[in-house]
């Protein structure tokens, strides 16, 4: 891994931390407010790709583990990594990697804008929603003993917000692709 790749991953971790400092935006049609930080998985995968993106999230999890309150709402410390929602946090690493892999496959610089945005959207939905939930929900069910099907039903309230995040992330990823393309230069 070159120094530049290491620096890009660390800068993206810092961006994810800053997104956690922005106050959550309540939306009229959604039951849960949107935190900008939870968009990070999709953004990291689509903008710096699979390897560097996953590394950015490994760094974030290490920062949480060593006791820094880097998660939205000032959460941090080992307690968060041992709680019932820890599966989602570890799922971010895998989710970013999958988002990055898909984005690298689906999107290239020569494509028309709409095609690029569609590619980023698919990558974000699969990596940032499907993969993260596929790891977070079984963990939650295992730790709390709540039946898995009930956990799935309960998670549906977050789905509209997550899809909206995937749309915003694909817009931002496309803007970066135009202004400062990093995805094509693989780590």
């Amino acid at each position: 891994m070159s120094t530049r790749d290491l620096v890009l991953a660390a800068l993206f971790t810092a961006i994810i931390v800053v997104l956690g400092l922005i106050p959550p935006v309540p939306l009229a049609f959604l039951p849960v407010p949107i935190t900008a930080q939870s968009m990070g998985v999709m953004l990291a995968g689509c903008i710096i790709g699979a390897t560097r993106g996953a590394l950015a999230y490994v760094l974030l999890v290490v920062l949480v583990a060593v006791g820094l309150p880097v998660l939205s709402g000032g959460r941090g410390g080992l307690a968060v990594l041992m709680g019932p929602t820890a599966g989602y946090i570890f799922g971010w690493i895998v989710g970013t990697f999958v988002t990055g892999l898909l984005a690298q496959r689906l999107v290239s610089e020569s494509q028309p804008a709409l095609r690029q945005m569609a590619g980023f959207l698919i990558a974000g939905v699969v990596g940032g929603i499907v993969v993260v939930y596929a790891i977070g929900m079984p963990w939650l069910s295992f730790i709390t003993g709540t039946p898995f099907d009930k956990v799935v039903t309960g998670s549906v309230v977050f789905l509209p917000g997550d899809i909206l995040k995937a749309v915003i992330a694909s817009l931002a990823a496309r803007a970066v692709m135009v202004g400062y393309p990093l995805l094509p230069q693989r780590a």
């Binding site: 890009l8 800068l11 993206f12 810092a14 961006i15 922005i22 935006v25 900008a36 968009m39 953004l43 903008i47 710096i48 915003i168 992330a169 817009l171 931002a172 803007a175 970066v176 202004g179 400062y180 990093l182």
Partner: peptide
């Protein structure tokens, strides 16, 4: 947010 993310990320990276 969707207007700020692009410039924020580009200027940082």
């Amino acid at each position: 947010l969707h207007r700020l993310l692009g410039p924020l990320i580009i200027s940082t990276l």
